[in-house]
Design a protein around this nucleic acid. Structure first.
Lengths: 212, 212, 212, 212
DNA sequence: ATCTAATCGAGACGGTACGTCATGTCTTGAA
DNA sequence: TTCAAGACATGACGTACCGTCTCGATTAGAT
């Protein structure tokens, strides 16, 4: 009798449909772009009724956010299997003792990722939606972005202990000096994205702009 | 800019309609948000036929970009009249000889601007659209963002001459160390935006993360 | 009749909407005339989405033809209940043995009907559309006109058996001698439509123009 | 100063434009049909401004009526030159003394004309418009149809004098017995249009349906 | 022969309606 | 009961024409 909005019964949920919806959503965003991706399109491609989508998600952005989260999770798992180190943290930043080299290494990997078409379309779409939709934006950051930034915080803390970074700095702010420029170039097309560029960012950030 | 078939005659264009469309577009974006702003809504609010919009612009984003440009132009003009210095450059960055102070001053002004509701709605909308629509994004950057960044380039060059910034740095990249973090926090809600934060950014960027 | 792509499922069709659309279409044609009757107007008056009209009909004329057919059907049913004779044929032409009188009687009834405003507006509209749109015209004739003409054929055949009409005549053509003049006067305003006129037509047709 | 609606100066009217408009209107009606013929289309095809049409005509139907009248006038003139008889009346009905033969002859010519594609498209369009627009319908009849019917009146009067038609008949009604059936078949597609059919009509009408 | 006022081609304008697409809700029948 | 299917009311899309309204540029008719 309670078929209305009040919480659907999650135990009866069709796993098969969920997967199909994720796949369809990601594929469509990649193929036709986010604005032309429609709920109806996702439903039909997933071989699913529209209601099945509306029952479990509240909007197109919502579907995509979960689909992308799922994709990232899979990717992380895959990466973890390739590199089954004791260090359980996914994508952990290496700590070779050479901070500049470690940061450059990770930023280069990020450059590669930003160019991977499978990631680009959905993450751009989510980022764009987040700019204009604060609620979604905060969820995007909390679930996807912040965990990654936390890795930089960890690495910077370790560097502070090793004496390679000034102890009075706030690592959460410090990391923005080299991460945000890359992010902005990617988001707003304010400049080219290359290894050389990210290397330069690390150098500038570590040594500062003022003469020593 | 009018790439329609059989280009319309711009000399016959109604100035009155253009202004009304700009005003309506900006007002609607501020009132109901970008996604709920429709071409029909703009037309009806401006007291204008839809075709008049389609004749001169190719999309909602296109209208808004021009409207915002116009608004910025007006604001710049107004500001210029308040401060009719010999220095003709609009919004020029002050050069008191104290680089850190000058940058902090300008970034604080930017913080204020980012919070001005009249600017926030349309610029967020344009930024979001630009993330997902490269063509528009590049136009947004070229016409609105880059001219502002150029002012930082100029100030940093002057600082290089004064010996306050290392001469081998690329100023266009250097400025990103303090500008991009602010931009990212604004775009993605990755952190609070305060005077204290921007002051910190300047200090970190000028002095570097590594101990001296 | 639903020749759209991917034919809609007629079993799920809303009877309520269909009725509302018929009513709205007939009312609008009567009130504002056929050319000012729009699909949007019908939809809005019927409290129905435009798509619901486009789903089941292909044009304004198509809607009106069905609406009028439905109306005629209802009228015929109502008439049949008033006069539940053994003679099942709807609107059957009386057969009193006096051919001239019977024809005059029926033609006078037709004159009345042609002047009934509830019938005039839609049937004029359909006739006009049919003049210029052969496909619709033929459907109009086949579903509405021809069944009525067939009644004359029957009556003339009976008269032939009774020896009141020459046996070698083609009744389908013969009936046109008195029916078509009335039709043309109505369609083209080529002359007044009165009982006297239709009586005269019957006399002329039965007796011929040549002296006896 | 009187540039408003009040009568334009007909002496300055461009003959060239009028002709071009007639030609364009007739051509378009023939090519794309009346409903798809638009004022803008006529103007552009005639190489004429829209205002030039609105200045001299009140509607699409009005343009077409005049254009068709002009065309008929030309055709009549051409026919008159082919057959420059003493009888000045255009398309006069022959009077050989054999009424039936004369009527059959003229009706056969009418059958031919009804099939001439150059005439069919515009006259159908005007007839259709006239069904639904009484004002135009009456003008159509008065300027085009009635003059032709008058020729039958004349011929029937002559026949009455010759004793071939009963003297008490109203010729204006009598002619409808064979003219209207043909008209209705043409207007409403109620039957095929052949020489045999029109011959039959004349026989039925002259001799009557009742046995002699 | 010159002036001058209207008509002319052109097309921008405020509108209305078109026919299509997607939204989010609701209903139906099969599993 | 959930699901796929899809009809439904709603509303925006982008297009086509409507009839009105300027714009110069001819182009006669009156001077």
């Amino acid at each position: 009798m309670a078929q209305n909005q009040s919480a659907p019964d999650a135990t009866r949920r069709s796993e098969r449909s969920r997967r199909a919806i994720y796949d369809a959503a990601l594929a469509l965003v990649a193929e036709v772009g986010y604005p032309k991706t429609t709920i109806e399109g996702i439903a039909s491609r997933a071989g699913v009724g529209k209601q099945t989508i509306y029952r479990w998600w509240s909007s197109k952005a919502d579907v995509l956010l979960e689909a992308f989260l799922d994709l990232s999770g899979q990717a992380a798992e895959a990466a973890a299997q390739d590199r089954p180190s004791a260090d359980a943290s996914p994508y952990g930043i290496p700590d070779t003792g050479d901070l500049a080299a470690d940061l450059k290494h990770v930023l280069r990997a990020t450059v590669d990722e930003l160019r991977d078409p499978a990631f680009e379309a959905p993450s751009r779409a989510l980022a764009a939606e987040g700019v204009v939709n604060e609620e979604l934006g905060r969820r995007f950051v909390a679930t996807l972005l912040e965990p990654q930034l936390q890795l930089y915080v960890d690495r910077l803390r370790s560097a502070q202990e090793a004496g390679d970074v000034r102890p009075d700095l706030d690592p959460r702010i410090a990391l923005e000096l080299f991460v945000s420029p890359l992010a902005q170039r990617w988001l707003q097309y304010t400049g080219p994205i290359t290894y050389e560029y990210t290397d330069t960012l690390v150098d500038y950030a570590l040594n500062g702009l003022a003469p020593r």
